[in-house]
Design a protein around this nucleic acid. Structure first.
Lengths: 188, 188, 188, 188
DNA sequence: TATGAATGAGCGTTCATTCAT
DNA sequence: TATGAATGAACGCTCATTCAT
């Protein structure tokens, strides 16, 4: 990714996160990037192409960070919990990226199918971490493939919660949500 | 809601769920509804107004159905689980509505703030059901206000799961997701 | 003009004067008149038809009042000056009507041609008053046909003046403008 | 003003003068200018913006020409008369512009207030020329500030006259109107 | 006579994309 | 590589008019 392309990449994330995909214009992106509008089309085929690039790159960053911050853990249960916690912690840093992504998860457009496919691949990587824990009986076998979806859902809970409680920091509630994810809501 | 308004209502949900709010056009909605474009504006002030109406009406329907199908239960824990289960079951019937709603949860536009506020009110109604269960020690007090958000997240898990596994019916996986919600992912 | 038609007539003048011909809508006129929109079309062929009716009626009212308030004068010069003065005085009472009329004097549309023709007829009636004065040498023969236009121009001066000086009443400046009309701007 | 902007400028004056501001469409303007509709918006913010530009530019041109063609005159009375005459002569060259302007003098819309304010400034410049003449007793002091309005009125007389007498050239009647402006209609 | 729901042509404006330089 | 003027299809919305009742 050369210098100009990086400028466009950063500008696009900024724009999409502020106003979503459809409300962000190529003019805006160009202005934020400090390049001419035509330059966008020299480096990307289309607006959708920029989006796709951002999603791929974004998911890659998330995946890398989750891996880097949990690979030192060997206890399966600890590791799973850490993955859940790290994902929630990343919400703060990548808040705009997540909002962009979540807004594009639900439709039938090609762009949106691609996004779900990319996410699905990430889910598969994650579930691999769980197989071992499953073997050792920590985790219900049937649930393994659903856990990444569950974590995805927990993240959406946290994001919406923080959108509706702007005074509360994500870090203040993520412990509780990790607990809910791991142990459910029923008191024991 | 008279006949024409109902036609527009149904057509709009269909359109919004397929292509999202921005990509759905008034021309399309009119065509699906089988009325002239001007007729949309005779019954609604604007495209945003249609959206707002859909959300309010949709959330009301969901809330009513959840209440109707769970009010006969007196055991707190049973009731909570039922609420979770009913919400997941409703996904099938209101799939288009939910996709519409979830696609508009994340931005800063007025329409999106209103949506979150409306949902927040529904959440408050739901949490009331949990207070009793909390008193009797079934549920961790601290978690009560988070549970509706958690349920919201579980639903998003299920929707995304079903979008990525079109061969699997929601009913086939909802039991597992209810279990995850209630008891977490850790095997006991 | 029956009762309903009168309601529409009054409402239209009110609407046109507030917002001009194009910005006034049939909905507004109907609302001000307190009748249904369809009723407008029972009494008038179209919006343009309402306009035409108002202009004809308005010019007739002006013409009648000018005649009534000056016909007792026999001295030609006095009479001419009185006509000029009365016209300026009517600006206050018919301010909204005049603004409506003046805004439609300048284009090429049929409605606008008709308006100018109607005004032209009124000008001819006025000029008749001047022929006598001309015979007696009070007024330059060549100028007779131009005087109604001049009076029309003086009125536009006064209207624009009052639009730009909302603190000053028309009556406070009309004497000066009558003087300018009769004797010009050169001091003697 | 570059080439394309000039094309739009000329086309807009033509369109506005024919059909007024509201009835002129951006499509028409684009077609007359020989550019795509989008191009209008590349050079101007809105239709109102085009109008504002036309008015400002038009009044500037008029003001410049009046100044250029009268500044060599030192005799106050001669100068005043020359100003009146030049203004009437400009009607022929700027006929479309004047019709556009006069059609927008009368309403309460922002655009129309701005127009009157711009004209008012021009009036102030003109009245300055008259102060000297007033000092030397040629002109009634009280009338000074009214004279630009009077000249404005005389112009409207001439324009309406020429709209109703398309066979007569403005130059054929402007002498008489100048005479009326300077000396009034009363024979001496 | 009077209504008002329904219409659809037409408007001002936006914006992703193209292309000559 | 990069530019930015130019494009035109498409959009949300308005509103004079129609017509069944």
């Amino acid at each position: 990714m050369n210098k100009t392309k990086k400028l466009i990449f950063d500008a696009s994330i900024k724009a999409f996160s502020r106003k979503g995909f459809h409300k962000s214009t190529m003019d805006e992106i160009a202005e934020i990037a400090g390049v001419a509008k035509g330059t966008l089309y020299y480096h990307f085929k289309s607006k959708e192409d920029i989006f796709k690039f951002i999603i791929d790159e974004g998911i890659r960053l998330i995946a890398d960070e989750v891996r880097d911050r949990t690979e030192h853990l060997s206890n399966p249960l600890e590791k799973i919990e850490a993955i859940c916690r790290v994902q929630l912690e990343l919400i703060t840093d990548y808040f705009e990226f997540f909002k962009t992504m979540y807004s594009q998860m639900w439709g039938d457009e090609e762009r949106q199918n691609q996004l779900r496919e990319a996410l699905s691949k990430y889910f598969n990587v994650i579930s691999e971490y769980f197989r071992e824990a499953s073997k050792e009986g920590y985790i219900d076998k049937e649930k393994i493939d659903l856990i990444p979806y569950n974590f995805f859902g927990i993240m959406s809970s946290v994001i919406v919660y923080s959108l509706l409680h702007s005074d509360i920091k994500v870090s203040e509630i993520s412990d509780l949500f990790v607990d809910i994810a791991m142990n459910g809501i029923v008191q024991r």
